[in-house]
Design a binder for these strands. Structure first.
Lengths: 165, 165
DNA sequence: GCAAGTTAGTTTAGATATAAATTATCGAGG
DNA sequence: CCTCGATAATTTATATCTAAACTAACTTGC
């Protein structure tokens, strides 16, 4: 039986009343992400027998149009290069992506979806989008718009101050 | 040299103008979490030579007071039991936590911080909190309060509709 | 041209994660 | 009592991920 993560105590459970709001925001952000991620991961497995990182990688390639280098994939998925190498190896073995030489830089390689990869993603994408929609069905449109805006502010703040050394 | 993740194109880069707002919220949520996580992970390594999951586990134990079972740790950190077993093994080997028998259920084991574990966490916690504060320094207090509220709404929505099968 | 530093990708070693199978114990109903 | 389904933790197999070392190719400044 699969545990139902959705209803059990989470990171915030022991949150102290006097915790700083910054910490609370961070813990709740992490809780939301983990909840959605776990749900998507489990559904990708049961519906399409694939994994979240593989789906994410295919999604980036699909959006990019004519391929991305390994480095671009790494920056978009925010993971290390070694990780991308492994994921692309696996997806190439499944015949969903292919490595092509880069036109002007022989160090680089352009990763592209194969026809099979494009078909596979096209089948999954709308279903995946419905899962996300359903999980956010409890929020109003105005709330989502405002949440998107505030997350944008947070992203800017982190990039401004977090990355500075 | 460590890549500076903070300024490169992320998941949203290829976001279509007509993407549904639900998908945009999810991608931006993931971007924020990944950014903060990468920063905290890197700093935990360079400042304290430890990792994020270990720090998280210590934090939960510290907040809990008199110990948590393996299952409770799993639900709070939202990871599977097998993962917790490995983390507790590692932390126990470092002498930061210990397994004690459960008073009324011989299947369970209560995990507690050792004195050394408590000291280690006490040293890291305030520094960790300053990192989080700094990353959110670009936001106003009212914005954070509203963000916290909206994330709460999202959490409720996911728990309501996501977990339902 | 060409040495020196940089960048793209891979490899390696080890840590973290899942899912599924297993073991031990619990708890309820007969 | 005692069997049977449920639960707690671990084990196993495999996938994902990081950090750091490495290789090959690029670029810059002279």
């Amino acid at each position: 039986m699969r545990e139902n993560l959705a209803r059990l105590p989470d990171r915030e459970s022991a949150s102290h009343r006097d915790d700083k709001i910054e910490l609370k925001v961070w813990l709740r952000l992490l809780t939301c992400t983990s909840l959605i991620e776990a749900e998507v991961r489990s559904r990708l497995r049961s519906s399409f027998d694939t994994t979240l990182p593989r789906f994410d990688l295919l999604a980036q390639l699909d959006r990019a149009g004519d391929g991305l280098t390994m480095g671009e994939l790494g920056s978009r998925l925010m993971v290390t290069g070694g990780n991308i190498t492994g994921l692309v190896d696996a997806l190439a073995a499944e015949g969903l992506v292919e490595r092509a030489p880069h036109a002007r830089d022989r160090r680089s390689r352009v990763i592209r979806l194969t026809a099979k990869g494009r078909r596979a993603f096209a089948k999954m994408a709308p279903v995946h989008e419905r899962w996300i929609d359903a999980m956010m069905a409890g929020m109003g449109r105005a709330e989502m718009t405002e949440l998107l805006r505030l997350l944008g502010r947070l992203k800017d703040s982190v990039r401004q101050t977090g990355g500075a050394r």
